[in-house]
């Protein structure tokens, strides 16, 4: 008998604080698998954002610096410029990246900083208790859109991957999901490309993951997982938006 699936070494062997059925845990594992695959563990400097994912320094066995909310791409710029031969990645949620950090992500991307950005879009602010985010769907009830998000007052959800692809400075832009084995395999292939454009010194790699948030969606893990395909993917289409397939 040969082991055909095991825990990646770059993922610290501890239980996580993520809620049952939250895709953060799965995405963390895919990232760790890439760190192992490319042998990056001891030359990676991670930049943690503020949100559910702030504890990435407990889960990735790499050096990590904590950025203020929304500023990870700017912190990462300083890190990468200072350590050009290290692998530098940020891991950010939709409140962090698409709202307060919108200027930082757009400009780091357009400068073509040699970074890999992992963006987890679960359509809410998770850690703070489920408020509306820039990616909250029309009609989606959150604690700050209790009657459902209205386009007239809050505008439609923002499609970040498409914006990133529209910037001249980016090298790879993809969006994936981990709700089904098939989507997960495709997402991992894209994630590898987002790693490779930095490793090969080509430029800025961006990978958006759609993710569940069962607790703040007020759904079971199973129902939340279904929502990815039923509601999110139609509005946030999966695939490569820039860079080779």
């Amino acid at each position: 008998m040969k082991q055909v699936f095991k825990r990646p070494e770059s993922l610290v062997d501890v239980p996580t604080h993520f809620c049952p059925g939250c895709h953060h845990g799965t995405i963390h594992r895919l990232v760790a698998e890439c760190l192992d695959h490319y042998g990056l563990r001891d030359k990676t400097i991670g930049v943690a954002s503020v949100g559910c994912s702030v504890f990435m320094y407990d889960y990735f066995d790499v050096d990590v610096v904590e950025a203020p909310h929304g500023r990870a791409p700017a912190v990462a710029t300083g890190v990468k410029r200072s350590k050009p031969d290290h692998f530098v990645m940020t891991y950010q949620g939709d409140g962090d990246l698409a709202s307060i950090g919108a200027a930082e992500i757009i400009h780091a991307a357009n400068r073509g900083e040699k970074l890999t950005v992992i963006f987890v879009n679960n359509t809410v602010y998770g850690m703070t208790g489920g408020q509306m985010a820039p990616t909250t769907m029309i009609g989606q009830e959150t604690t700050t859109s209790p009657y459902g998000r209205e386009e007239e007052s809050a505008g439609p959800p923002i499609r970040i991957a498409e914006i990133m692809a529209g910037l001249g400075g980016t090298s790879f832009v993809g969006r994936g999901a981990v709700d089904t084995p098939k989507n997960l395999m495709k997402a991992k292939k894209m994630l590898k490309r987002a790693f490779e454009v930095q490793i090969n010194n080509e430029g800025f790699g961006f990978m958006e993951f759609l993710s569940t948030c069962p607790t703040n969606w007020r759904m079971t893990a199973e129902k939340a997982n279904e929502r990815i395909a039923d509601e999110l993917i139609p509005y946030f289409p999966l695939g490569v938006f820039k860079g080779d397939k």
């Binding site: 610096v65 500023r71 700017a74 912190v75 710029t77 300083g78 410029r81 200072s82 400068r111």
Partner: peptide, 24 residues
């Protein structure tokens, strides 16, 4: 030299470079 998109971004770039021990 990096011209940042704002003073908010530039202090955070300083934070990043400083965390790796570079003089910035």
């Amino acid at each position: 030299f990096v011209q940042a998109e704002s003073e908010v971004a530039s202090i955070n770039m300083l934070l990043g470079a400083g965390s790796t021990g570079s003089r910035a």
